[in-house]
Design a protein around this nucleic acid. Sequence first.
DNA 1: AGGATACTGTGAAAACATTCACAATCATCA
DNA 2: TGATGATTGTGAATGTTTTCACAGTATCCT
Lengths: 212, 212
Amino acid sequence: MISEKTIERLSQYRHFLREFLKENVDHVSSSTLAERCHGQSAQVRRDLMEMGYRGKSTRGYDVEDLLAAIGSYLDRPGGEKVALCGIGNLGRALLTYFQGSLSNLQVVAAFDRDPHKTGRVIHGCRCFDIEMVEKVIAEQGIQVAVIAVPGPDAQRVADRLFAAGIKGLLNFAPTPVRVPPKTYVEHMDMTMALEKVSFFTRQLAPARGAPK
Amino acid sequence: MISEKTIERLSQYRHFLREFLKENVDHVSSSTLAERCHGQSAQVRRDLMEMGYRGKSTRGYDVEDLLAAIGSYLDRPGGEKVALCGIGNLGRALLTYFQGSLSNLQVVAAFDRDPHKTGRVIHGCRCFDIEMVEKVIAEQGIQVAVIAVPGPDAQRVADRLFAAGIKGLLNFAPTPVRVPPKTYVEHMDMTMALEKVSFFTRQLAPARGAPK
DNA sequence: AGGATACTGTGAAAACATTCACAATCATCA
DNA sequence: TGATGATTGTGAATGTTTTCACAGTATCCT
Ligand SMILES: NC(=O)c1ccc[n+]([C@@H]2O[C@H](COP(=O)([O-])OP(=O)(O)OC[C@H]3O[C@@H](n4cnc5c(N)ncnc54)[C@H](O)[C@@H]3O)[C@@H](O)[C@H]2O)c1
Ligand SMILES: NC(=O)c1ccc[n+]([C@@H]2O[C@H](COP(=O)([O-])OP(=O)(O)OC[C@H]3O[C@@H](n4cnc5c(N)ncnc54)[C@H](O)[C@@H]3O)[C@@H](O)[C@H]2O)c1
C-alpha cells in the first residue's frame, strides 16, 4: 500500500507542475521539481516510481505527461462528488474555495440544520436540510464528505454520514471522530496546527535574551 | 529534538484530558487515553516520556497534573500573540474560531489591503492596513503569523512578515512559501487534504461492482 | 504484612521513510 | 558513429517512528 506521505507529495508535485506548464516549461528534472518542493530529488523519483511512472530518461520528465499520469493516479475518473455538512463561517468559506478552484473535487451538496441556510444554491451547490442527508447521498452516490459543524455535533453527523454510505471524511471539527472500519478519515485540526507552530517557533527562536 | 508527531499528539491528548476533567475523571491510564485517540498505549507513554513527564505509577496519570504539564510544555508562558494576514472569507472564519476558543493563542492583530476591511475591531482583534504590518509586529513583539491571503500574494506577504520579525507561520494559501532559515512554517493545504481523502477512499472502498 | 494487581518507563525489535550512490539509459554533438 | 554528459530507476544504507515486551513500582485488598 502506498504511503500517505507519497500521496501528499504527488498532490504537491502536481501543483508545481501546473506552474511549470504555465511558464511553458515542457520538461523538468527530479532535482528541479525537488528544489521547488523543498525536498530531495531522490524522493521525487521514488514517489513517481511508487505510482509506477517511468519518465523518458536524460531529458527529465515531460511536464504534461507527468501531470496526466498523476491525475489518472490520484483522481477519481469522472470527478469526486463531495458532501459538505455545516454551512457556517467555515463551511461557506470552504464552499467558495472548493467551487472556485478547478479541480477534480466538486461539492455537489451541502447540509445544515438551520432552515435559514438551506434551500439556496451557493456557488452551484444545493443546500439541503440535514434530514435529507441519507436520501441525497444515496441518490447521488456520494462517497466523500466534509464536516464543518460544531464539535459537539461532529460525531453524530459523522455517524449519519457513514450510515448513509460515505467512505471518506475530512473533519474540521476540533473533536476527532470515530469511524467504521474500511473507511478513511482525515482530521484537520487548526488549533493543533497553530500550537505546533507556536511550539517550534520557540524551539528555533527562543525569547530575546534567552540563553544560547 | 522532539518530533512533530509527538507535539501533535500532545495537543490531542490535551483535548481529551480536558474532556476527562469535565467528566470528573481524575485519573487516566495510558491505554484509556490511547483508546480515545485511536492510538497505542505505548505511544502515549513514550510521548509523555519525550516531554520528560513521569506519572505516579499504578493509578495512571493524574488528569489535572498531566494537563498542567502539557500546558507548561507546549504553551508560551503569558500567551502566544498571533497576527493574521488576509481578512477574507477564511480569515474572518479563523478570527471567529480562534477568538472563540479559550486557549493560549490570541490573535491580536489582523491585516488586509482592502480599506473596507480595516480600521474595525473584530472579536477583540484590531484590523490594520497591511502597510502597518512591520510597525505593529515590532511594537507588539509578535512572533507567530497566519496567512490567509490569495495564493499569488502569499509569498510577498510572508517575506514581509519574516522581515518584520515573525519566526513561525501557518500558511493557508495553496502555494507553499519559502521561508528564511531558523524559522518554522506549517502549510495547511485543504485541497491536498481532500485529494488524499478521495484517493484513500477509493483504495479502501473501490467502486461498486469493482473486482475484489 | 504480604501477595495480587494494574500500571508505568524504557531497551530492543520491527516497521516505515528517506537518502545515498551508482549502473543503466538515451539525447546530443563532434 | 561513438564518446559525452545529464538524468533516471533502484538496491542498499541510513534515519526515524512505532510497537513489543517486560522489569520495576506503587496501590489495594485480605
Ligand atoms: N471558523 C473556522 O475558521 C474554524 C476553524 C477550524 C475549525 N473550525 C470548526 O469547524 C466547525 C464549524 O465552524 P464554524 O465557524 O463554521 O461554526 P458556525 O457555528 O459558524 O457553523 C456551524 C454550522 O453548523 C450547523 N449545524 C450545527 N449542528 C448541525 C447538525 N447537527 N447538522 C447539520 N448542521 C449543523 C449550524 O447551523 C451552523 O450553520 C466547528 O466545529 C469549528 O470548531 C472552524
Ligand atoms: N476560503 C477557504 O475556505 C479557503 C480554504 C483553503 C485555503 N484558502 C486560501 O486562503 C486564502 C484566503 O482565502 P479566502 O477565501 O479568504 O479569500 P478572499 O479573497 O475572501 O480573502 C483574501 C483577503 O486577502 C486580502 N489581501 C489580498 N492581497 C493582500 C495583501 N497583499 N496583503 C494583505 N491582504 C491582502 C484581500 O483583501 C481579501 O480580504 C487563499 O489563498 C485561499 O486559497 C481558503
